[in-house]
Design a protein around this nucleic acid. Structure first.
Lengths: 267, 267
DNA sequence: AGAATTATGTGAGTAAACGCACATACCAAT
DNA sequence: ATTGGTATGTGCGTTTACTCACATAATTCT
């Protein structure tokens, strides 16, 4: 299918929340430079150490930020969907990353040449504000992934990962194999098989051959570790902060805590 | 000891590499606003969710970015020493973090009011350049911690953590208890006891009651996982990139790979 | 000096995830 | 309809780290 012939509801650049939240004049300036690109599953958008020539703003599909160790072991530090962008390194000035950007779920992204992004970043306070807040959100997600990897079970992480995907794709059916999920979580395929089996038994999901259907999203959130909600709350908080805030923001040491039923066991 | 009476070699603001790498005119503008602050071990500089009023530029000592889960489990996503700063959230616009900034090793830091940092960030391209590159370095470190937590053994992570500390403190003696290290790595104290015992047996370190002496740094690097070197290389790469680069940077997909002897076993 | 506190060492049993091996089931292509 | 490839299920022995329970040793306090 030709990229330009996509239904406009799916491929409107404003469906990327970062692009959609820009000041109208900034967006107008960028719009002519945005080009639609299809992202195919498994595609490596940017290998580690190679220069990123474009920023990618997904409107559908998910890009995974994936580590690969010397021995071939993998693991994801964050995902990028229509809430964000790939290409923070363009305006942070490093040009390259230590990790690989891979398409985890196929879809479309608008891409913007690095120089255009950079120019607008330097020119517009509004653009800076959005991109920098997103950078903080990305850092929060990455950081939470670190502690999640340390302390939570494969089943909890699987639930979290499904929710991350669900939030970034339309519908309740996800296209990903257990093998794929395993390599994003950095665990064995068999581990996903067992955990997914339990989730299916409990009626949270159903799946067959790379097609996962979420049956009970609320339950999935209960089975997931807190990491999902912590990152989601932080991203929403960041999106709510206005670009030019009052001089003195309300001082708060409180963080939202959800009351949550005791998490079901692993078995 | 009174902060202002410290030997100047230890408390010169230029000993913070981030401050030291600023354009002279930028530094001159900031210098009068910098105030020396003593950081005591265990001090919580900024609890999660509370507004950071100052950026901290350590000249000695280490600040740890620490997660705490609902059940009390902890884990560090990154460390901040004289190579960087605490307070990225000031210019990224979020004001608060989901994680806690704690003093892991006591020392001194210069602190700068958030508004001053923000003003200079908006005003000076040189300041932006340094701070943004540091942001990328922080992200790289955090991201690597995520994969490290997933795949490497306690012993490997202990070695890495010791090296991170060693790089940011003078001398070869570190002041930290096994309990402290355990909570930064998010593992049991007994696990550190065992791993540290093996490292001592192997002649890499010696220690007693919170005083660790590094005897063989090279060997320590061999015992550590690759994560240490990956992050170090990336930080050095970022520091080397000039602020206003040529239009076309040399394109490279290569990343430095160290030839390394086969790592010694866990026992 | 003796007691209390703090730091560290060690052992036994348990749990989670791993590596490996192989069985089964689904889908697609001829 | 058969075949081949891909995806998933399952069992078993191993490893790593965990929980729990103390023992020992160094430092500080009175």
């Amino acid at each position: 299918m030709h990229a330009q012939s996509q239904a406009s509801s799916q491929v409107n650049a404003q469906n990327n929340r970062l692009l959609g939240s820009l000041d109208p004049d900034v967006y107008q300036r960028l719009a002519p430079k945005l080009e639609l690109a299809a992202m195919t599953r498994g595609e490596i958008i940017c290998p580690p150490g190679s220069k990123l020539t474009h920023a990618f703003f997904p409107v559908s599909g998910i890009i995974s930020l994936l580590h690969m160790l010397e021995d071939g072991a993998t693991g994801e530090s964050a995902v990028v969907g229509n809430e964000g962008m790939l290409g923070v390194v363009i305006f942070t000035g490093g040009y390259t990353m230590t990790i690989e950007a891979t398409v985890q779920n196929e879809g479309y992204a608008y891409r913007l040449p690095a120089e255009v992004l950079m120019d607008e970043f330097n020119r517009s306070a509004s653009m800076r504000d959005r991109l920098l807040k997103y950078t903080q959100a990305l850092l929060a997600q990455t950081s939470q992934t670190a502690i999640c990897n340390r302390h939570h079970t494969v089943q909890q992480q699987l639930c979290r990962r499904l929710l991350l995907t669900l939030d970034r794709l339309p519908g309740n059916e996800l296209h990903m194999t257990q093998e794929q999920i395993a390599s994003t979580l950095g665990v064995r395929r068999e581990g996903i098989s067992e955990a997914a089996g339990r989730l299916q038994l409990a009626g949270l999901i159903s799946y067959k051959r790379g097609r996962i259907t979420i049956l009970d999203r609320d339950l999935l959130e209960e089975y997931a570790c807190e990491c999902y909600q912590v990152v989601k709350d932080e991203c929403e908080r960041l999106e709510r902060i206005p670009a030019s805030p009052r001089k003195h923001l309300p001082y708060s040491t409180e963080r939202r805590r959800r009351v949550r039923p005791p998490p079901p066991g692993n078995h």
